[in-house]
């Protein structure tokens, strides 16, 4: 059996002898607003295009009320809500060593995003935010808290961060699971979550 060394040797023998330096990649974000208030609407529009939505907590409403109101007609009577954020208790605790297979009955998972991307409407998680990675796919609906201050302009900026270098798993979610594999008809919730809702919520600064 040929292994690493043979394959590498074949590559060395065959690779084109061209001078091809790695190009500098610009950030291409001069045209973006420079403040959060400017970026948020772009984020929300981009997210809507991808089938996600933004919900706002109304005066006097709690986070849980807001979530239940937003998803009202899509929930069973006693929804199982698993929360990975301190802002909400929910009725199912997520523990790091939970067997992922036990999470299949969760109706709503509530997570905090590390950051968001205005260009695409993406939100980013690592295993730290997810607690159990699979929850973000096995739950029926996802609710995401995002601090508007944590928006970057575009995907180039997203990749200039170093989250990926430390995390085992880093993922951008852009709207819910989707497919158009049957005659091009768009279906939400192909395998993963059926909906994704983002709520603006700054991280409470510890007092």
């Amino acid at each position: 059996m040929k292994g690493r060394n043979d394959i590498l040797a074949a590559i060395r023998a065959n690779k084109p002898a061209l001078k091809a330096p790695a190009p500098e990649v610009p950030s291409f974000d001069e045209a973006y607003p420079t403040d959060t208030t400017g970026l948020w609407p772009r984020f929300a529009d981009a997210l809507a295009l991808m089938g996600g939505s933004v919900a706002e907590i109304q005066e006097g409403q709690s986070l849980e009320d807001c979530i239940r109101a937003t998803l009202a007609d899509r929930l069973p009577e006693q929804p199982i809500i698993a929360s990975a954020v301190p802002e909400l208790t929910g009725n199912r605790r997520l523990r790091e060593h939970d067997n992922p297979k036990t999470l299949h009955d969760i109706d709503i998972a509530v997570l905090r995003a590390r950051f968001g991307v205005a260009e695409t409407g993406s939100v980013c998680f690592t295993e730290k935010e997810l607690i159990v990675n699979a929850v973000a796919y096995l739950a029926q609906h996802l609710v995401v808290l995002l601090d508007p201050a944590e928006l970057v302009t575009n995907i180039h900026r997203a990749y200039q961060r170093d989250d990926y270098k430390n995390a085992r798993y880093t993922v951008f979610h852009t709207g819910p699971s989707a497919t158009a594999d049957i005659e091009g008809v768009l279906v939400r919730g192909a395998q993963g979550v059926r909906s994704l809702t983002v709520i603006a919520a700054s991280v409470d600064t510890p007092g």
């Binding site: 790695a22 990649v25 981009a46 295009l49 991808m50 089938g51 260009e119 695409t120 409407g121 993406s122 575009n154 995907i155 180039h156 900026r157 997203a158 990749y159 200039q160 990926y164 270098k165 995390a167 085992r168 798993y169 880093t170 993922v171 951008f172 979610h173 852009t174 709207g175 819910p176 699971s177 989707a178 158009a180 993963g192």
Partner: peptide, 29 residues
């Protein structure tokens, strides 16, 4: 990693005409 900005911006736009795939997943460990 910085190179990925270029490819992710191109990939799904070229493929399906959507700005990005719903999931972009980075597995490291």
């Amino acid at each position: 990693m910085e190179d990925m900005g270029v490819f992710i911006r191109l990939l799904s736009r070229s493929a399906l005409g959507s700005p990005i795939t719903q999931y972009t997943s980075h597995f490291r460990a």
